[in-house]
Amino acid sequence: MEFFLISMLNGVTYGLLLFMLSSGLTLIFSMMGVLNFAHASFYMLGAYFAYQISVKIGFWPALVIAPLAVGAIGMLVERYGLRKVHKYGHVPELLFTFGLAYLIEEAVHLIWGRSAVDYRVPAELSGSLFKIYGTAFPEYRGFMMLVSVLMLVSLYLVLTRTRIGLVIQAALTHPDTVEALGHNVPRVFMLVFGGGCALAGLAGVIGGNALVTEPGMALSLGAIMFVVVVLGGLGSLAGAFIASLLIGLLQTFAVGFDGSLGRLFAPLGISFPSGTFLGELWGLTISSAAPVLPYVLMVLMLIFRPRGLLGTRDV
């Protein structure tokens, strides 16, 4: 029970962080068809901006300014880069973001150096919220949950209750019709791209100090976000939400299980000597394979249900 509750909490916080990252990506991906390889780079930019601002003026202003700055950069990238490439098709668009990820990483190296920077959790939030079976639950994790839930709610409200939100939703499914109705779809694209980047930036602001702010942080999260988006289904924020929580919980709980094929088959007397390939496969525990499980899940999902959990069309 103790393990279950703590893992539940850990899984949900991690899942919510993943959701913040992937919500922007899923918007961009489903609307523009662009697999934005630089999305995690915008997350990194958010963290570095927040570090710089929090050193100068403080964490709370950074919480607002950094995502806006990242969003602005995102819009510039869309306006002067992606839009030019758009006419050549999706592959060049994707490759453009691929190259962009290189550039952002090098820029971060140049400006902030190659080691981790000391971006800290603000003093107001560094205590513990409550204790559960002797394990402290940090205030900051609570704050992370709060921010991501707030973000989910406001995103939902913007998309369903505002005019621009309705246009975006329509453009997700019927871009041509929306264009025919006289809406400036390229501008909507720019807004969505900028907005998506801003969300990634926000995730960077609150994820950067909970984890580590260093130039490799983009690379380490890049692939897992695609898993979330694909798993959740195209164009579905709700799907991305469920997929994020699912992956968060899956990874957290898998760590707790020491089961392996060897143990499973032990009663049947099937075993292999250690030091051989099969022996190693037999001895591989679920816990040590935990971080790879999302990819297994993704491949299986794509094979059996390519539209994802809540998607309405194939990826």
Binding site: F3, I6, T13, Y14, Q251, T252, S288, P291, V292
Partner: peptide
Amino acid sequence: DLHPLGQVKDFAPYVAKIK
């Protein structure tokens, strides 16, 4: 515990296990 190299982003579950 053996975990994959450089793939773990959240160590909280491992810490829970240690605890």
